[in-house]
Amino acid sequence: MLTCLLLCLILWSKRATSSVGRDALSVKNKRDLPSKLCFVCGRPFSWRKKWQRCWQDVKYCSKRCRSLRSISSLTKQ
């Protein structure tokens, strides 16, 4: 029983400290996350885990702004 508990503790600590599949971004506070301005609405939006591999390519804060991108490009001209 004790060996099983120790084994579980060791595996859990290794999993908690491993960086496999994680971004090099180490943030302790949500305020420290990088942010961008949306091209359509101009509002700031913060980094999300689902964007960790394509953060450089993210331009819009939401699906709604992505769908409105063609409308906003026509009105800016």
Results as ranks from 00 to 15, higher is better:
L2W: 00
S72W: 01
D23S: 15
L7I: 04
F39H: 08
R22Y: 04
W51Y: 07
Q56C: 06
K30Q: 09
L7A: 12
R53Q: 10
T17F: 04
G42A: 07
S26F: 03
R22E: 14
D23Y: 04
A16H: 08
P34K: 01
W12S: 15
C65F: 02
Q56I: 03
S46K: 15
L37K: 15
R31V: 14
S19P: 03
L6V: 13
W51Q: 05
K30E: 09
V20C: 11
S70N: 10
R43S: 06
R66Q: 10
R22F: 08
K36Q: 00
D32L: 02
L33V: 04
S46D: 12
S35H: 10
C41W: 00
A24V: 06
S18A: 09
L74R: 07
W12N: 15
R22H: 09
R64F: 11
L5P: 00
S62F: 08
S46I: 06
R22T: 13
C4W: 03
S26G: 01
C4V: 08
C41L: 09
A24I: 08
K28L: 14
Y60S: 02
V27F: 08
A16T: 07
S67N: 15
K50A: 07
K63P: 06
K28R: 12
W12Q: 12
A24H: 13
M1I: 07
G21S: 06
C8K: 05
Q52H: 09
S26V: 08
V58A: 01
W12G: 14
R31F: 12
S46C: 10
G21N: 08
S72C: 05
I10Y: 14
F39P: 01
D23R: 14
C4L: 12
Y60Q: 02
L7H: 04
L2S: 00
L25V: 03
W55Q: 04
V40M: 03
F39G: 03
L7Y: 06
S19L: 07
R43G: 02
I10F: 15
S18P: 03
S62T: 05
W47E: 04
S73V: 04
